[in-house]
Every structure is written in C-alpha cells, then in structure tokens.
Write a protein that binds this DNA or RNA. Structure first.
Length: 395
RNA sequence: GGGCGGUUUGCAGAGUGGCCAAAUGCAUCAGACUGUAAAUCUGACGUCUCCGACUUCGGUGGUUCGAAUCCACCACCUCCCA
C-alpha cells in the first residue's frame, strides 16, 4: 500500500494544496518536507507526537524530513485558533524548551546525513533587518487577504496585536528559506496551521515562480469535538516526569468508546489490514481494543519495558490484585489518612481529602475509610474512587 | 490624543454598601448504575485545628461601624471618535 493512500485511510489527511502532485511526490519518495515545532513548553505533547509519527511514516517511504524548531517564531507566538494572547516567553525559556524538544525528538526520528535534519529558525529570523524584510517579503502579502484568514478570525473579535499578526509572515518566510537553502518542497502541520502554510506556498511562488506544497494533519478530536490529549490538569505530555507512563497509559485506556478506532488508526503503527480486522470485532471486545491502543502508544513513547510495567500496574489496580501497583513515596508528620492523601498528591488540600472521605470515596486496603483519623502504614494501598490506586511508602 | 465600558473564586458569567466564600452554566471530583466507556440521578467543589474561624472579587491607598460593591491613583484590555 502506498503511503499517501495509507495516510488517507488512517484519516490523517485534512487538507492538501494539490492532491495529485502531493501523492506522486510522497509516494515516489521525492519530498523534502518540513514540520515546525514552536517551543511553547518544555515537553512535547500528543499533537507533536502525531506530527512526529507522520514524519516517521514519510521517512520510511523514502522522503527526507526537516524538523524545524521555532526558536525564532517562539519569540512571537502563533495566534491561530487562540482567543487570547500567548504569554511572552523569555529567551532563556525558549532556549531551554528548544533543548528539551530536541532531546525528545531524537527518540522518534533518526537524524544524520541522508536522514532527517534539524534546524532552528532563530538562526535566520533573529538577524533579519526590518526594512529589508518589508521590502523583500512584505510586498508579497495582502493585508486584505490576511485579515480574511481563518486563523485570525477568533482574534478579530477580541483583539490581535501587530506582533502576532506577523506570525504568518514569519512562518511563510521559514518555508521560503528552507525551500532555498535545503530544497524543501513541502510543509506539513496541524490543521490549524493551514493559513500560515498557504502563506508560505504563495510566497515561494511569488519569489521563485516555483510550486511548493502543503498538507495538514487532521486534528485529533474526540466525539464531542474537543481536542484530545488534554486532561483537567493540562496536556498529556511525552516527558515521563510530567506525565508518568502509567498516567499516559491510563489516558488512552480511558478514551470514549466512540473514539477508540479513530485513535488506533491515527496514532498507532498497527498495519491497516490488522486494523480493518479489529473494526469487525464485537462490542464486547471494546476493552481489548482500548488495551491495545494504550499499550501501543505507551510503547512508542516510553519504550516496551515501561509500557509493560504500565499495563501490569493497570491490570493490578483494576483487577483487585495488590502486586505491581504504582507506588508513591510519602513524607508526612503524622501517618493518618488525610495528610497521606495530600502528600501523595491524591488530594489538593486537607479539606478536599476530608470531604472525599465523608462522601465515601476513599478506601484503605479494600475497606472503606469512615474515620478521618485512620492511621496509614507503609505498604498500605490507598484507593480514591475506582480509578486511583496507589501503594504508599512512608519515608 | 479624546471618550465610553471592563478586569469576580479552573473557564464563562451574576452580584453595584451589610442577608456574599459570592447566583447560574460548564469543567472537575466522589456516590449510585456500569465495562477503567457513554448517558442518567445524587452530593461536593477558597483555606484551616471544618457545627466555628480565616483569606479572597486587577493593584495600591482612602471613605465607612461595615466595601467585590463608593472615592482616588496605577496597570492591563474591548469598543467608539481622531
């Protein structure tokens, strides 16, 4: 099966500038493509993960990827799809985030001669001269068109600063620069990047008369139309210090029934034949699908060892066993249930812990806690609701 | 540059001198029912030494017995006129 057709069947393709050309290009391995990543945080998240997987798939099909780290665009901030101004990042934070990205990416993509390369747009954007850019690039953009762009729509109501308005131009300039410097002929990105990417293809056409292409990846939305990869606490991170392999596993183990197949198709590398087979499975096997999804993804992100551990911990926690449970070192003054719950990060405050107990939401070693002064020993298992099960180690 | 309006507990959004820890919706958490799903119902949802006390309503001061509410100044934001 050709790569373009596979991407299509997996539902990964959202928009393309020229389907016929793009198909030929990537199926034939002739694409030199880039994807940009802005260093807005110190870890990658699920959205980045999809982009990296796409890179991997295309690389396997013989295309050559360029990873662009937005060390320069990070100074500006992309307003696409946002209703408010991003907080401005300091140069130190941007640099730190770039370094973190780089480290994480090296685990997914092979870099080296004839393989993928990594560039940082700070290298060319930061030294640009304002007037020169205006004359060279500014003439190629129509403000009328830019204002109509989908990505600014939300911001037209609440206000858009000139700083952010320029983001599109910077991203377009990146594409142009990579086209000239590395022969980059294609850009991929999240679907919210569409207008920015078109800006780049337009700029290249106007400056060089050549065609370049753009394709966006479908945003991973759940059945309610919300972005996936977000929890109440924030994003699901790829960094295990920010989202543990167990939490990562649990996130995918708990997706809605309606979203399982979509996630399997879009996020895993399970061959399509096998996926088509899974689609025929009866409803009763829905939990089996979720286990596969969770395991496969955890394996991709954290490695097979940790994925196995996470799965074992999950099986233990929900199978009633006391072996293999996630453990937590806890340091408390008095070893009773309330301070332990707080110190273990299960509850945010003493009051919350107290209420939870009063409502019957906490168990200790399989018996419901009714007394708020119940003592806790090292090795005790604390249960909050039916999903949180942790073995406590007092230190 | 001038004028209006705004800034409330995770978000949205009420409240315009005491009855306000602050309506309501969403999100979240727990209980019941389940399949570690969804839907539904119930409860909780600032902090604490929790029948009570304490700290909050952009910031700083002030008026008052008493302020989220009134006044002054500062910061940020929308809109309107230039």
């Amino acid at each position: 099966m050709e790569i373009f057709e596979e991407l299509k069947e997996r539902g990964l393709i959202a928009q393309v500038t020229d389907e016929k050309e793009i198909r030929e290009l990537i199926n034939g391995g002739g694409a030199r493509f880039y994807i940009g990543f802005d260093p807005t945080a110190d870890s990658l998240h699920v959205g980045h993960f999809m982009a990296l997987c796409l890179m991997k798939r295309l690389q396997q099909a013989g295309n050559r990827p360029v990873v662009l780290i937005g060390g320069g665009t990070g100074y500006v901030g992309d307003p696409s799809g946002r209703s408010d101004l991003r907080s401005m990042l300091t140069p130190e934070i941007i640099e730190h985030n770039c370094a973190c990205f780089k480290k994480q990416m090296e685990r997914f993509i092979e870099f080296g001669e004839d393989k993928a390369i990594m560039v940082n747009n700070a290298d060319w954007l930061l030294k640009l001269n304002y007037v020169e850019v205006l004359r060279e690039v500014g003439t190629c953009f129509s403000v009328n068109n830019m204002l109509r762009a989908e990505c600014y729509k939300q911001r037209m109501e609440k206000g858009l600063s000139f700083l952010e308005f320029n983001y599109m131009i910077m991203q377009s300039y990146d594409f142009y620069h990579l086209h000239e410097a590395y022969g980059c002929n294609m850009q991929f990105g999240g679907d919210d990047q569409w207008s920015n990417m078109l800006g780049g293809t337009e700029l290249i056409r106007k400056k060089t008369g050549k065609d370049a292409y753009a394709m966006t990846i479908t945003l991973l939305l759940n059945s309610e139309g919300k972005k996936m990869g977000k929890t109440a606490k924030g994003a699901v991170w790829l960094d295990e210090n920010k989202t543990s392999p167990y939490e990562f596993y649990q996130y995918w183990r708990n997706v809605d029934d309606a979203d399982v197949m979509k996630c399997i198709k879009m996020l895993t590398f399970i061959p399509m034949e096998q996926i088509r087979e899974m689609e025929k499975w009866e409803d009763s096997r829905i939990n089996e699908k979720k286990e596969i999804l969770a395991f496969e993804l955890t394996k991709l992100v954290h490695g097979e060892e940790k994925a196995k551990t996470a799965m074992a911990q999950a099986k233990a926690a929900f199978g009633g066993s006391t072996d293999n449970l996630p453990e937590k070192d806890v340091k408390v003054e008095s070893a009773t249930i309330i301070p332990v719950l707080v110190a273990a990060g299960i509850c945010a405050s003493n009051g919350e812990a107290r209420r939870l107990i009063q409502q019957g939401g906490v168990s200790l070693n399989d018996s419901k806690v009714t007394d708020i002064n119940t003592p806790v020993k090292s090795g005790d298992i604390v249960h909050k609701g039916k999903k949180v099960h942790i073995k406590i180690n007092l230190v």
